[in-house]
């Protein structure tokens, strides 16, 4: 049977179930707009709850203003949503409270996080704020990995930690704030140390 002779069947297009993907619009604090799929949003407990509470239809999503995320800039939010889109549909890990937590950084995440520390810390902050458990895990792991094989001096340099003197001053200030007698005890301890005993034990 030729194509020309084939019976013509009217197709009611509305009757065919079409999988509709909804894309929400978000705006960073520097007015950059992002379109993020419904499934990707599920990676963020905070955003997922927010969109559920808003109950937007697909028309609302297009017509209403983008949802403002006021604490996060566009550069960071871009990374966050790239991560969410790549990992959409994946199970969200449950914290079993164990320490140390074993975390593997997948190749995509490693590439995404080839960024300077400033941006990386913002990413951690954003992952925590938006409650994206696995992004928080991998970004924290990336920062933790910087400590691998480092001497105390190198740790101070990499993490910009205060010197011993600054640290001692902070320790004293914290102790004094907690207990005004702490300083006296500390001095007595130092005095005893000077007088002989190397160690308490």
């Amino acid at each position: 049977m030729s194509v020309e002779n084939a019976p013509v069947v009217d197709v009611d297009e509305a009757a065919i179930p079409v999988e509709k993907k909804m894309y929400y619009r978000f705006e960073s604090n520097d007015k950059k707009e992002f379109r993020v799929s419904e499934l990707a949003i599920q990676q963020s407990e905070t955003l997922n709850r927010l969109v559920e509470a808003m109950g937007y239809t697909s028309e609302d999503v297009e017509n209403k203003p983008a949802i403002a995320i006021e604490n996060i800039d566009g550069k960071t939010l871009k990374l966050v949503f790239q991560w969410c889109e790549h990992h959409k549909g994946e199970a969200i890990p449950v914290d079993d409270g164990s320490v140390p937590k074993i975390v593997e950084i997948p190749e995509f995440d490693a590439k995404l996080m080839d960024i300077d520390n400033g941006l990386l810390f913002k990413l951690i902050w954003a992952a925590d704020y938006l409650n994206i458990v696995q992004l928080l895990n991998v970004s924290c792991k990336k920062v933790a990995n910087m400590a691998q094989g480092k001497t105390p001096a190198q740790l101070r340099r990499v993490y910009l930690l205060p010197s011993d003197e600054e640290d001692e001053a902070a320790k004293r200030a914290a102790q004094e704030a907690q207990d005004p007698r702490a300083r006296e005890v500390e001095e007595e301890f130092e005095e005893r140390k000077r007088q002989g005993g190397n160690s308490f034990f």
């Binding site: 320490v99 140390p100 937590k101 975390v103 300077d116 520390n117 400033g118 941006l119 810390f121 913002k122 951690i124 902050w125 925590d128 928080l136 895990n137 924290c140 792991k141 920062v143 933790a144 990995n145 993490y159 910009l160 930690l161 205060p162």
Partner: peptide
Amino acid sequence: PRELLDLPNEMIAEIISK
């Protein structure tokens, strides 16, 4: 740039826990 110590304690704890 933000530093490690700019982060709140719970996030620093999360990093160290790894």
